[in-house]
Amino acid sequence: MITLYHLNRSRSKRIIWLLEELGVEYQIEAFQRDKETSLAPESLKAVHPLGKSPVIKDDDVVVAESGAMTEYLIDKYAADRLAPPRGTPEYIEYLQWIHFAESSAMVPLLLKMFLNKDGCKTNFLQAYADGEAMKILTYLSEQLEGKEYLVGNKLSGADIMVYFVVDMVEQSGGLAFFPVLDVYLKRLRTHEACQKAEQLEKELG
């Protein structure tokens, strides 16, 4: 039995989708953000020292970091369905998109979110965050031009990882500037497992 330690309004939503897509038996242990600080509760540190979510426990194996979880779960349960064959150019592309979602993409988007939440005047950071966010979203849009999915023209773990990025941009109102990404997000939401993840995230949030 897999346990997902879930935090509302977090990357955990993409792992719910993945678990639903895999069709494996799992349970969710839900945690709530502090209503004033929006931070994760201290109780999550009993699961992982960083007190972050998502974290999964698969029998005796504990895995943190959603990119690592995605690779681990797909390798174990659906390597023939949700990842290209190892040793192919498509597999290398797949890995790059998985890590893009949590490195190049998330850093400027989170920086923009924190700056907007803080409301402070900056000398450098706001312009930097805006420029970097525009750069990575333009890049993603260009790479998806004429394609339905990121790799091999079928759903993979790369799409499930990048889904959270595009979903986050939609929530900020930024997809109006990127019609290709808007279409892509709508396509991802046609998958029943994605719909189930969004429904569960709302119920748990």
Rank of each mutant, 00 (worst) to 15 (best):
V61C: 05
L73H: 07
D167W: 13
V62E: 08
G152M: 08
Q27L: 04
G51N: 07
S104Q: 13
T3S: 02
H48C: 01
V165F: 02
C194F: 10
V63T: 03
R14D: 00
L144A: 11
A133S: 15
C120K: 15
V24E: 11
K13N: 07
F100V: 00
L73Q: 11
E21Y: 01
D159A: 04
D58I: 01
M161N: 09
G87V: 08
V107N: 06
P179R: 11
L140H: 14
W17Y: 09
Y163V: 02
L175G: 09
A158D: 05
Y91E: 01
E21P: 02
L125D: 12
C194N: 14
E198I: 11
L204P: 01
Y91W: 13
N8W: 03
E142L: 13
S104K: 05
L137M: 15
P41W: 12
D80F: 01
G87F: 10
A78I: 09
Y139L: 15
E21H: 04
N153W: 03
W17K: 02
P84V: 10
L181A: 07
P89M: 02
M1Q: 07
E170P: 00
T70W: 13
Y149M: 07
K147V: 12
K121P: 00
E29A: 03
F31I: 02
E145I: 04
I56H: 02
E42Q: 14
K76H: 06
L73R: 08
T37E: 09
Q32A: 10
I92G: 06
L181W: 06
Y149T: 06
L109F: 09
V61Y: 04
P85R: 10
V24C: 04
A193V: 02
E198Q: 12
F177T: 12
D60G: 07
I74K: 11
E93I: 03
Y163R: 03
T190S: 12
G173N: 12
P41T: 13
L200K: 15
E65S: 10
D59H: 09
L73W: 08
A30F: 05
L185A: 04
T88V: 06
V162W: 07
T3G: 01
G87Q: 11
M134G: 15
L95Y: 03
T138H: 14
E93H: 10
E148H: 15
A68N: 14
E198F: 15
S10I: 08
L175D: 12
Q27F: 01
Q171S: 12
A197K: 10
D159Q: 05
Q32L: 07
E42P: 07
D58E: 08
Y26F: 14
D167Q: 14
L137A: 09
A79H: 09
G23M: 04
A129E: 04
P54R: 05
T3Y: 00
S172E: 14
S156W: 07
L110D: 08
A129Q: 05
K186N: 09
R33G: 09
L204G: 00
L4E: 04
K202W: 03
L18K: 05
I160R: 01
L155R: 04
L137C: 10
A64S: 13
A46T: 10
A79T: 06
C120D: 07
F177P: 00
Y72P: 10
N116F: 06
L44C: 09
R187Y: 03
Q126P: 01
I28E: 01
L175C: 11
D182I: 00
D59C: 03
Q143D: 07
E42K: 14
S38T: 15
S156N: 11
N123Y: 02
I160F: 04
Y72E: 06
E90S: 10
S103M: 08
S53F: 05
M168P: 00
E20F: 04
